[in-house]
C-alpha cells in the first residue's frame, strides 16, 4: 500500500520536474499518468511475483483514490465565488457554448467511431 502511494507521488513529482526542466506545457500530473501507464503496459507480461504484488497494490490504491475523485474538485470549484463577475456577464453565452459543443462532439464522435469500428470488424 505505502509503496503504491510512494510510486504515485514520485511519478507526479518526476512529471513536474520534467515539465520544469523542458518547459513543457503538459501538466506535470498528466506526465506522471503517461509514465505510470507506459510502465504498467511494458511490464504487463512480466510474471515475477514481486511485480505482480506491486501491480495489485497500485490498482487497489488507485481505485481507492479515484473513488473519492469527485470530492477532490470541490476546493478549487468553490473558487468560483471569486469569479462571479466574469460569470454574470457571460454565463448565458458560456452555457450555450457548452450545450452546442457537447452535443455536436457527441454526434461527430459516435458517427466517426461507428464508421471506423464497422470497417475494422470486417477486416
Amino acid at each position: 500500500m505505502l509503496i503504491a502511494i510512494f510510486i504515485i507521488f514520485a511519478l507526479q513529482l518526476f512529471g513536474e520536474a520534467l515539465q520544469q526542466i523542458f518547459e513543457l506545457a503538459i501538466p506535470g500530473p498528466v506526465i506522471g499518468l503517461i509514465l505510470l501507464l507506459a510502465s504498467l503496459i511494458l511490464t504487463k507480461s512480466n510474471f515475477n511475483p514481486r511485480f505482480f504484488t506491486l501491480r495489485k497494490s497500485l490498482v487497489s490504491t488507485s481505485e481507492h483514490l479515484l473513488g473519492y475523485l469527485s470530492l477532490l474538485f470541490v476546493p478549487i470549484g468553490v473558487g468560483v465565488v471569486m469569479h462571479l463577475q466574469l460569470l454574470e456577464t457571460q454565463a448565458l453565452r458560456i452555457l450555450l457554448v457548452i450545450l452546442l459543443g457537447t452535443i455536436s462532439t457527441m454526434i461527430f464522435t459516435s458517427w466517426f467511431f461507428s464508421k471506423l469500428h464497422k470497417k475494422e470488424n470486417h477486416e
Binding site: 502511494i5 507526479q12 512529471g15 500530473p29 498528466v30 506522471g32 499518468l33 488507485s62 483514490l65 479515484l66
Partner: peptide, 9 residues
C-alpha cells in the same frame, strides 16, 4: 495531482 496519475489504472 496523485488522483490524476492514478487515472492510468
Amino acid at each position: 495531482g496523485p488522483a490524476t496519475v492514478a487515472l492510468a489504472i
